[in-house]
Design a protein around this nucleic acid. Structure first.
Lengths: 125, 125
DNA sequence: CAACTGTGATAGCACACCTATCACAGTTTT
DNA sequence: AAAACTGTGATAGGTGTGCTATCACAGTTG
């Protein structure tokens, strides 16, 4: 299930991309699985076809999916999605850690938060 | 010294805000210190006055600075800036750590990166 | 008085995102 | 074969945001 936050600053097509990548990464979407059609997803999310198309096309450019004219869009066999997700996630993590350092958060605090988040469940405060 | 990256996706006025907050947080700007005038900073950064004004006004709204008509803009006595910076930074850190967990980065990897970034200098790769 | 401060208002431009629409190509279903 | 589905391409227009340009006003400083 894909959910869009229209108020978010991150563009809708990027939200779609991220969530598809996550679905693949968690295994909910398997290699060669068919993605919802552009029209169907656009209809479900109450979006324009072009917006969904853009998300799909960028995913294809990144080799996460492949498309067959008239048939649909499918998850690539190669586990590129996983790599991309991990790479992006680590990139963002490094960025934020550097920023955290610059802004005065102690490394102990970082590790504390890390353990908290990883050992306990979600952050429900 | 404030540096603007025009290619960044984050708006210029936000870049200014962040860097001023950092200057205050690191102590380079002390309470009651005067910020560069809107016109001077705009001139230095080759920006329009309105852009700098917006950054300054938002900082004032957040109680980080106060302005005196005809005199200038000054750092608030109360260390609000520090709080704001830390709060925002920790909030983002938690968000990204949760996301890292969800996307399959191990806690060991997080701690490894943390130590790397905090012990060594910047990320120069 | 001149030159500096902040503030306010207005207008316009550029860009990115999104929508609307029509059209075409290929596949699947009936 | 026809209908209904798939992806794709092109074009146009709306909208919000960020930034600029400009003029004006208010207060402080030298």
């Amino acid at each position: 299930m894909i959910v869009i936050d229209p108020r978010s600053r991150t563009p809708i097509f990027e939200q779609i991309k991220e969530q598809i990548l996550n679905l693949i990464n968690t295994g909910e979407l398997q290699p060669d699985d068919k993605l919802p059609s552009v029209r169907q997803l656009a209809s479900e999310l109450d979006l324009n076809v072009n917006t969904v198309k853009r998300a799909y096309q960028e995913l294809e450019t990144e080799r996460v999916t492949y498309s067959l004219l008239g048939k649909g869009v499918f998850v690539s066999k190669t586990a590129v999605a996983n790599k991309i997700v991990l790479e992006n996630a680590e990139k963002e993590l490094v960025r934020v850690l550097s920023s955290s350092k610059a802004k005065g958060i102690s490394p102990e605090r970082v590790i504390e938060l890390t353990k908290l988040i990883y050992e306990k469940g979600d952050l429900n405060d």
